[in-house]
């Protein structure tokens, strides 16, 4: 049996629906059509009352999820693209994110964001929103980089009593395959050493884990062993694993696909500088996309986001410092 990252997300939703009658899916085109990416393919046939098409109303979709969660339901909202969650931003950050702290009543919702760039998708179908939502209190932000994590972390997200922003990467949907799914996975909040090394650490997440591993393989030819840390969840952030890796390597490069200003990479570096300054042999670096909207043409798009090539270049510079 071979399974893609996208199929794992579909399987996790099937399993969540099967396990708990309180789980339901709500989103645009997710019913008979099976979703824009087919992440809910044929789920409506199995669970006709619990896979519901929504109007193009992201604010209302999240509001519905919040209300349903208060009544004991476990909604999974599919945003057609992460970019459109901006239209539901208010309900996400001001309503779902504040609910438990204000009222003492948890708000267990999962919002799936098909995230990140693919060639030709342009400014409004390519964004990565994890840094934006991580800024606000009350939201768990998950960024699975593997088929196994896509499956298990989505199930964990549904079981969690807090609102979860589930950033699944569209570039990985079809590219990434696994032969089987393990029965268990690491808990939410724990980072994973995706590749061990001793000369420098890359802290990254989501699709950039794979670009970073390719860059690390490239540098192996020059005799460098690069450690790659996959954050898995950017909030909560596993500072301990990050510091442990930097303690081994003395050098840090943080790679993210989201825009450069502020964000997850800035947070990682701030934490390492604050708590592990003495571990650093060189100034920590970050590599994000460029500070422009995401371009349409593949030539521009490839230059806009970090790639194995640009990560390798950043690593070489870091290793010379």
């Amino acid at each position: 049996m071979s399974l893609t990252y996208l199929e794992a997300i579909r399987e996790a939703q099937y399993e969540a629906l099967r396990r708990d009658p309180n789980v339901f899916l709500y989103g645009q085109d997710i019913g008979a059509f099976g979703g824009a990416f087919k992440a809910t393919k044929r789920l409506v046939d199995e669970f006709p009352k619990r896979v519901l098409d929504a109007p193009i109303s992201e604010d209302a979709m999240v509001g519905v999820a919040i209300g349903a969660a208060l009544e004991g339901a476990r909604p999974i909202i599919e945003m057609q693209f992460a970019d459109f969650s901006a239209c539901g931003f208010n309900q996400i950050v001001n309503h779902a994110g504040t609910h438990y702290w204000r009222t003492g009543v948890p708000c267990p919702i999962v919002i799936r964001l098909p995230s990140g760039g693919t060639a030709g998708s342009g400014p409004f179908h390519s964004q990565s929103m994890e840094s934006v939502y991580a800024h606000y209190p009350g939201l768990v932000i998950l960024t699975p980089a593997t088929v196994e994590d896509a499956y298990h972390m989505l199930l964990d997200a549904v079981a969690l009593d807090d609102p979860v922003i589930f950033c699944e990467h569209k570039f990985l949907y079809y590219h990434l395959k696994a032969d089987s799914l393990p029965d268990e996975a690491m808990p939410i909040g724990k980072a994973r050493i995706a590749r061990p090394g001793r000369h420098a650490t890359i802290v990254t997440y989501s699709a950039m884990v794979h670009e970073s591993i390719r860059a690390a393989e490239e540098l192996q030819h020059d005799g460098y062993q690069i450690e790659v840390v996959d954050l898995r969840s950017v909030k909560p952030m596993d500072t301990e694993t990050i510091l442990g890796s930097v303690a081994r390597t003395g050098r840090l490069l943080c790679v993210g696909e989201s825009f450069p200003w502020g964000g997850v990479c800035a947070e990682v570096i701030a934490r390492v500088v604050a708590d592990g300054f003495h571990l650093l042999d060189a100034p920590p670096q970050r590599l994000n996309s460029k500070d422009t909207p995401i371009p349409y043409h593949p030539n521009l798009w490839r230059a806009h986001r970090p790639t194995a090539l640009s990560i390798a270049a950043a690593l070489r510079k870091l290793l010379q410092d």
């Binding site: 009658p21 309180n22 009352k49 509001g63 209300g67 349903a68 004991g72 309900q91």
Partner: peptide
């Protein structure tokens, strides 16, 4: 309520929808 007006309508709708599903 939160201060952002109109948000309660979909929340109440969601509460009803959950009860319908259940």
């Amino acid at each position: 309520m939160i201060s952002h007006l109109g948000t309660s309508i979909s929340v109440v709708a969601g509460m009803l929808l959950a009860r319908r599903l259940q």
